[in-house]
Design a protein around this nucleic acid. Structure first.
Lengths: 340, 340
DNA sequence: TTGAAAGCGATACCAA
DNA sequence: TTGGTATCGCTTTCAA
């Protein structure tokens, strides 16, 4: 069965005995329509089940707004990306704006392909957690009025707002915490260092070691870790080495998860200090509880939303790079002291 | 500074010295264009930074497809909703389809409002985790060709595909597991029973008790629990009562989280059996490990995607209600036996 | 307050 | 293989 065609403004106008322009006025709540005519139109709208066609409307309007923004995040099933999406979506809903969501999975080609699709759809704004090394490819669209806000990472090759944390400070907070408890063999477990956030956390690790004049040991640094399983393998490797670390800085959520599980399985959870990055549900009731560097995801989301809608509302001030605070949440597993 | 206007097909046609129709053919990769003309057009497209306008294209096309679908889930920051979204988004990307994401937060008014906005945008399909008691309001749009698939809950008042689990079986699995370990005072902690999933899990709890001829004790049933904080209060209340439960079935993820934390705080984590609904990261390394009823979220997502795109591809077979399996993951805390 | 005609950017249909 | 013209559903512009 073929779908019944939808009623158009013409149909509504015919039924109400007015012109399409008058229907348009009623639908758009323009004031200059007499009450009884407006009522006739509304009745016709209800009778026919008429639905305003936003695409056609946008096409003709001077201000070519689609009322749609997009969130290009790394992984929607990850708590951090999901929180950012949630913040955008809630604020957007208040303004009758729809939010398109995509995961980039650290794939630059995917980022460009998805952006292309969104530009074809003429979205008004983009929240981007870049997977590309440069976003210069966006310049023509920025010139055409596409509002863009970067989150978690800083824009490269374009000049737009961004909201991020000082990852190096986070890495230093975590590492210093471990050094303060007497550790000298602190391992770094993180993602590929070509990723800005991974590199920043590593830089903080290096900086903290240098500040205490603890030599950086390459054998204690494992990168390119993306999943809990990757992390588990890395921890097994470190524990099996001739001179294992007494403490671990797990610079990603999934890596911390794998580390917790592996330390537990190997029976050394109470003998190896661990600090994670990004908070966990129930991190406080683990045994031992997990110390983490926490990003204030709500603040990040709120700031992204604030920048995005300010720009959409016409703010033309110079691009801002907003820095959201990081916090070390001390919970216990970071407190473990090295054996003498 | 006002944005530069975007180039249109007319501009491209003028620069390439062909008609707009020919540009249209090249852009849409229609075969009947000579190679050199096509090349001239592509050069002009690149020179002008021309971007195909999907909205205008859709408006004129016979098959009025926007290449956009929407996912209306309960809470995008919840792991279950996020997984469903992720599955949809990955499959959609392969077909160049954009995905609009929204959280409904169990608010029927919000559901209707958001659906209205999406219909105005003429999305091709809807994945809906209903917050309304009836979705009959969707009928006119279904008639107009809107493809809809319900997930997690069954459609009411309309006849569309759905993908869900047998929540009653899940509730019975959890409760029976606790009864099998000798418990007779098993508490039920869940959400508002007007929510289909909450009611189903509760029905399974009742059924399991009845099957073992254990009297249902109203004092052990607490509903309307949405957050971990709600759950914490409920557990405190139960533990403070004159005859506390020896086991708890926490019928939601957030409720299980609050229960785990509270049992731990009260020092009775090893004295009170607990079974949760929906799996957790690190549930296996909690102390004691958490037994849960697990929904196969990947299977649910895959099935939703399969139904959605089959319908979009023209499948007109009768609506299906797909049931995804549930599994009891035994991990320990459910194994605790009641004191004698 | 209301309406007729033009046109937004693209495709359908038919002709050359 | 190519192009002209009408038109998708709506808003703009201007006149009544």
């Amino acid at each position: 069965m073929r779908p019944a065609p939808r009623a158009t403004m013409r149909d509504v106008a015919a039924l109400a005995g007015v012109s399409v322009k008058t229907v348009s006025r009623v639908v758009n709540q323009e004031p200059s329509v007499s009450p009884d005519v407006a009522q006739r139109v509304r009745t016709a709208v209800a009778t026919l089940g008429y639905r305003h066609h936003l695409g056609a409307s946008t096409l003709r309007r001077t201000e070519q707004r689609t009322g749609t923004v997009a969130a290009l995040l790394q992984d929607l099933s990850n708590a951090y990306s999901a929180s950012v999406l949630r913040a955008i979506e809630v604020a957007a809903h208040e303004r009758d704006i729809a939010v398109v969501a995509s995961s980039l999975d650290e794939d630059p080609a995917r980022e460009r392909q998805i952006v292309e699709g969104l530009v074809r759809r003429r979205v008004d704004g983009l929240v981007l957690m870049p997977a590309t090394a440069s976003q210069a490819y966006l310049q023509p669209d920025l010139d055409a009025g596409l509002v863009t806000v970067c989150v978690d990472r800083h824009p490269q090759g374009i000049s737009v707002d961004s909201v991020a944390v000082d990852g190096a400070r986070g890495g230093a907070l975590a590492t210093t915490h471990l050094l303060d408890h007497g550790h000298r063999r602190v391992a770094f477990l993180g993602d590929d260092l070509r990723i800005e956030t991974a590199a920043a956390r590593y830089a903080g690790y290096e900086r903290a070691l240098a500040a205490r004049e603890v030599a950086l040991e390459p054998g204690l640094v494992v990168t390119g870790l993306r999943s809990a399983a990757d992390a588990a393998r890395a921890v097994h490797g470190l524990l099996d080495s001739t001179d294992p670390p007494t403490a671990i800085f797990a610079a990603r959520n999934a890596v911390a998860e794998g580390a917790v599980r592996t330390l537990r399985e190997r029976g050394v959870a109470h003998a190896t200090a661990l600090v994670g990055f990004d908070d966990f549900a129930l991190a406080d009731v683990l045994d031992p509880p997990l110390t983490v560097v926490r990003q204030d995801v709500d603040a990040i989301g709120a700031e992204v939303v604030s920048r995005l809608f300010a720009r959409l509302d016409g703010d033309t001030s110079p691009p801002r790079a907003v820095d959201i605070d990081l916090e070390l949440v001390r919970r216990g597993s970071g407190e473990i002291r090295p054996p003498h």
